[in-house]
Amino acid sequence: MSTLNKRVAVVTGATSGIGFQVAKRLGQDGYAVVLNGIEDEEGAKKVEELKTEGITAEYVSFDVTNDAAVTKNITAIGEKYGKIDVLVNNAGGLGGRSRFEEMTTDFYRFVMALNLDSVFFASRAAIPFLKKGENSSIINYTSNAAWNAGGPGAGVYATSKGGVHAITRALAKDLAEYGIRVNAVSPGTIDTPFHAQIKATKPEVFASWANSILLKRIGKPEEVASVVSFLASKDASFITAETIQIGGGQALGI
């Protein structure tokens, strides 16, 4: 099958962690995958790794918080392939910790841009090409923090993820007439570079997190990727406006 005949998936923030595993899984599912990131050397390495497995992949560098850069690059991807079948808005992060009293406006705007604006920018740019795709869908990432407001200093992260939950449902309403589905996943504690620092410096703390999870273990990036794969597939063709918790029961707050 030529590249132009393959289904096309764009995954933001895909040079490591969950994003890379999602790109890998979609590539294994037969998609041509476009990995986005801002670490160009790592992006090139990851594309080569996927290509050695026979996956059609390329890396495109842009900052998901930059409106113009997102629009330019997503449009270029859509024009190159003639369509986009799946957009995975994986990019995001805590951005740091700050209580609201001491929080600077710049920090607030950065975290909101990283987690919420990025979803809007990428989705808006992709919609014209998703309309040309097959069983097209957008998959976003929210968090338990969207419901429990996050831990100390993570209030604005929680606020941004609450916005992702809302925009997922709003996009689903907006795009239903075109047959474009929009869903979200909500990963719990997953063993990724996101937690690398505490895992390295306080391994006992990292290990203890399993105690608050019903299944008594930390999740794996591949376990998130498998759910994203399902949501992108025809098996999920009647699922839209939903959020799937992937946390081993962590959301129950035991």
Results as ranks from 00 to 15, higher is better:
residue 143 S to Y: 10
residue 96 G to M: 00
residue 180 I to W: 02
residue 190 I to W: 02
residue 134 E to R: 05
residue 194 F to Q: 06
residue 89 N to A: 11
residue 172 A to R: 01
residue 169 R to I: 12
residue 159 T to P: 00
residue 33 V to A: 14
residue 116 L to F: 06
residue 110 F to P: 08
residue 82 G to S: 07
residue 196 A to V: 10
residue 104 T to E: 13
residue 189 T to H: 12
residue 178 Y to L: 00
residue 27 G to Y: 07
residue 123 S to Y: 01
residue 183 N to S: 03
residue 146 A to C: 03
residue 222 E to A: 13
residue 254 I to P: 05
residue 161 K to I: 09
residue 254 I to N: 05
residue 64 V to M: 00
residue 159 T to S: 14
residue 110 F to A: 11
residue 136 S to F: 06
residue 206 F to W: 15
residue 67 D to H: 08
residue 3 T to E: 15
residue 177 E to S: 01
residue 132 K to N: 13
residue 14 A to Y: 15
residue 186 S to D: 10
residue 163 G to D: 12
residue 188 G to F: 11
residue 253 G to K: 11
residue 141 Y to C: 04
residue 58 E to I: 11
residue 115 N to H: 02
residue 222 E to V: 04
residue 9 A to G: 06
residue 25 R to C: 03
residue 116 L to I: 09
residue 63 D to H: 08
residue 16 S to G: 09
residue 229 S to H: 04
residue 252 L to I: 02
residue 203 P to V: 09
residue 85 D to N: 12
residue 100 F to K: 02
residue 236 A to I: 08
residue 129 F to A: 11
residue 139 I to E: 01
residue 251 A to P: 02
residue 204 E to Q: 11
residue 209 W to N: 03
residue 176 A to Y: 08
residue 45 K to F: 04
residue 167 I to P: 03
residue 101 E to D: 06
residue 93 G to T: 09
residue 250 Q to L: 07
residue 143 S to T: 12
residue 184 A to C: 14
residue 72 K to V: 05
residue 142 T to G: 07
residue 173 K to D: 09
residue 31 Y to D: 06
residue 71 T to L: 04
residue 39 E to L: 02
residue 178 Y to H: 09
residue 170 A to D: 08
residue 91 A to C: 05
residue 28 Q to T: 05
residue 16 S to N: 15
residue 135 N to E: 06
residue 8 V to Y: 01
residue 25 R to T: 14
residue 139 I to M: 04
residue 30 G to W: 05
residue 88 V to H: 00
residue 230 F to V: 02
residue 55 I to K: 10
residue 185 V to R: 01
residue 250 Q to V: 07
residue 211 N to F: 00
residue 9 A to Y: 10
residue 240 T to A: 12
residue 254 I to T: 01
residue 83 K to C: 03
residue 133 G to P: 10
residue 253 G to H: 08
residue 250 Q to T: 10
residue 21 Q to H: 15
residue 143 S to C: 09
residue 220 K to V: 12
residue 221 P to C: 14
residue 137 S to D: 01
residue 113 A to Y: 01
residue 92 G to M: 00
residue 238 F to P: 01
residue 106 D to N: 09
residue 197 Q to E: 14
residue 65 T to R: 04
residue 92 G to N: 04
residue 214 L to T: 15
residue 51 K to Q: 13
residue 245 Q to N: 11
residue 53 E to K: 11
residue 13 G to K: 14
residue 215 L to A: 07
residue 25 R to I: 07
residue 55 I to N: 12
residue 171 L to Y: 11
residue 144 N to V: 07
residue 160 S to M: 10
residue 83 K to T: 09
residue 115 N to I: 04
residue 179 G to A: 01
residue 136 S to R: 10
residue 39 E to D: 05
residue 180 I to F: 03
residue 23 A to V: 08
residue 221 P to S: 13
residue 24 K to F: 13
residue 163 G to Y: 06
residue 182 V to A: 06
residue 44 A to D: 03
residue 64 V to W: 05
residue 79 E to N: 13
residue 132 K to F: 12
residue 120 F to G: 11
residue 251 A to Q: 03
residue 179 G to W: 00
residue 80 K to C: 15
residue 252 L to W: 11
residue 98 S to C: 00
residue 5 N to D: 15
residue 34 V to L: 02
residue 195 H to C: 11
residue 30 G to Q: 01
residue 172 A to S: 09
residue 194 F to P: 07
residue 22 V to M: 02
residue 253 G to P: 14
